[in-house]
Design a protein around this nucleic acid. Structure first.
Length: 303
DNA sequence: AATCGGACCAACCGCCCGCGA
DNA sequence: ATCGCGGGCGGTTGGTCCGAT
């Protein structure tokens, strides 16, 4: 089969390590315009000296508009713990149950926090020798809180809004985003790599940005195209919903979320018979289904 | 003030899988 | 049926931050 094949691309002359803001900008602009049909070809087409895999990872883990940043909530922690019991190190599966979170992020959280927390909890429960119903109640609350935050608290789920956000956020090209506490010095301490994702929240690819970028780079033609694109984007953003919906559809397609947000918003993640059949084979769905049907009255389940 | 060590996390590496030729 | 390719996934690494000494 395909095993043992050469690396996905010739790595000679390619950039490695932390992504610069310019690289991020190029990647975003390219994907906004063309999507990412072929990750391997993308870097060249986008004018990036990066491996396709690296671009894919950067987009999926940090640049995607629906990424949810910040600390994990207790509920998210519990969900991860419970799903890990079911699935083991299937981070992508676990991530699919935590909207806005990435497998990489979940993996990191598990390795740095949850594994230790779980170990200490187990030690404690061993010494106290208490019954395990605390765990089940935790699981139950996990289900509700998981989808409660999907429905109410998680703005990242609203892909339409997010798409608008992507197009409307003000940008002073790669200027240090203002910290919430207004400590500009803090942001300047952060490396380009770590700050770039944060910076993403605070910038948009505007024509001005592209013009500045243009002066930085040899890709004049591409930059001009980007300027045109972003100019169009700003006009289109003003046009409103249609483009947002297009972006929403695009994102849903790209992220494999087709219909998911709608279903979640209706609070009826488990509904028809076909889904039910499918879920009986899926431990995660079974887990949620079990929690749902055994623990909560109907009106609560559908609220 | 300097040093050290642990925590954190972004990014890379290499294997695996599915799909199309 | 076989093979090659692209994409996805999980494990690991390395750089940075930050608190303790």
């Amino acid at each position: 089969m395909g095993r043992g094949r050469a690396p996905c691309c010739a790595k000679v002359g390619l950039n490695k390590g932390s992504w610069t803001q310019e690289e991020d900008l190029r990647l975003i602009a390219y994907i906004q315009k063309h999507g990412h049909g072929n990750w391997r070809a993308l870097p060249k087409l986008a004018g990036l000296l990066r491996c396709g895999k690296s671009c894919r990872l950067r987009w999926i883990n940090y640049l995607r508009p629906d990424i949810k940043r910040g600390n994990f909530t207790k509920e998210e922690d519990d969900t991860i713990i419970n799903l890990h019991k079911l699935l083991g190190n299937k981070w992508s599966k676990i991530a699919s149950c935590l909207p806005g979170r990435t497998d990489n992020e979940i993996k990191n959280v598990w390795n740095t926090h949850l594994k230790k927390r779980l170990a200490s909890e187990e030690r404690r429960s061993m010494s106290v020798d208490k019954p395990d119903d605390s765990q089940s109640s935790s699981s139950s609350s996990t289900y509700l809180s998981c989808y409660a935050h999907v429905e109410k608290d998680d703005p990242s789920l609203d892909l339409a809004d997010l798409s608008i956000e992507m197009f409307e956020l003000p940008m002073d090209i790669w200027g240090s985003p203002q910290q919430e506490d207004g400590t500009g010095d803090e942001s300047s301490k952060v490396s380009p790599c770590s700050s770039s994702s944060d910076a993403m929240k605070d910038f948009l690819v505007t024509p001005d940005a592209v013009i500045q970028l243009e002066s930085l780079s040899p890709w004049q033609e591409e930059a001009a195209a980007m300027a045109e694109l972003t100019q169009r984007n700003s006009v289109e953003a003003a046009e409103g919903e249609d483009k947002s919906l297009e972006w929403l559809e695009y994102l849903e397609k790209e992220l494999g979320l087709c219909g998911a947000s709608e279903e979640m918003n209706q609070g009826s993640f488990v509904r028809d018979a076909a889904e039910q059949t499918e879920m009986e084979e899926d431990p995660v769905s079974s887990y949620f289904q079990k929690e749902l049907t055994s623990t909560y009255p109907l009106d609560l389940r559908l609220s």
